[in-house]
């Protein structure tokens, strides 16, 4: 698994994707922090995270579209299949590399509330609670994106479908509210963004944490199954 993890991480830095991803994330956070915390003089950093979570529509497909799709396009998946590694090691290695690239700019973002706290009364607990949920939200979307990249061998399809799925999930609760009734409850229950907003409202929701972790585990499992299925086709 470590070999796969190292190779993937190297490829994200060699191709420049890690830098582009980091730059996008930091620009989104920077702009939102400027608007809310500096110009708006609001002390809640969690509002910044809530405002930029729509940015996942751009940055998640950017990172995940090549992950498995590119292996199939270059036919390097045959190497992975013939190496003495099981499919869980391969998929987890790839996923952990994605997670590392996502976590790196978040280390910088984690300094923002501390910096702001020097100039005002920042609610650090709710800021870092939201940041924890934001990382889980991103991690869940990375798992979904990884799965989608295992389904197709076209980069545009991989990126496009991932973006549409994230966007649909983002607006699903608004749609649910419009329609109302049981549908609204179902959509709200499965929406990843809705579970994140609970943290933004200052509540550390354990059930949401379990939900995020379950989504990650489910989509990694589905990715493994999709890779295994190719052996049988």
């Amino acid at each position: 698994m470590k070999a796969i993890y190292n190779r993937e991480l190297d490829s994200y830095f060699h191709s420049g994707l890690a830098y582009i991803f980091g730059a996008f994330l930091l620009v989104f956070v920077g702009l939102a922090a400027l608007v809310y915390n500096i110009n708006g003089a609001v002390a809640n950093f969690e509002y910044v995270l809530a405002a930029i979570c729509l940015g996942f529509v751009i940055i998640i497909p950017l990172l995940t579209m090549r992950s498995i799709t590119e292996e199939r396009r270059q036919r390097t998946d045959q190497l992975l299949y013939s190496l003495p590694l099981n499919m869980y090691e391969i998929v987890c290695g790839k996923y952990l590399a994605l997670l590392t690239v996502f976590a790196m700019p978040m280390v910088i973002v984690a300094c923002y509330p501390l910096i702001f706290s020097r100039y005002g009364d920042v609610y650090l607990l709710s800021a870092y609670g939201s940041m924890f949920a934001f990382i889980l939200l991103g991690a869940a979307w990375l798992a979904v994106g990884l799965f989608i990249s295992s389904v197709t061998d076209k980069l545009a399809v991989s990126a496009g479908v991932t973006a549409v799925v994230i966007l649909a999930n983002y607006y699903a609760s608004s749609l649910g509210d419009t329609i109302g009734g049981f549908f609204a409850k179902v959509v709200s229950a499965i929406s990843l963004f809705e579970h994140f907003y609970v943290f933004v409202n200052g509540i550390f929701d354990i059930s949401a944490v379990i939900y995020f972790v379950s989504v990650i585990a489910l989509f990694l499992f589905l990715t493994v199954m999709m890779m295994e299925k190719r052996r049988y086709s």
């Binding site: 070999a3 490829s11 191709s15 390097t76 998946d77 190496l83």
Partner: peptide, 19 residues
């Protein structure tokens, strides 16, 4: 099955570790 953005040394190092 070659990773074309790697050098042969990097590629073989990856394969050796994976094996």
């Amino acid at each position: 099955p070659l990773y074309i953005d790697m050098t042969p040394i990097e590629y073989l190092s990856f394969v050796a570790r994976a094996k």
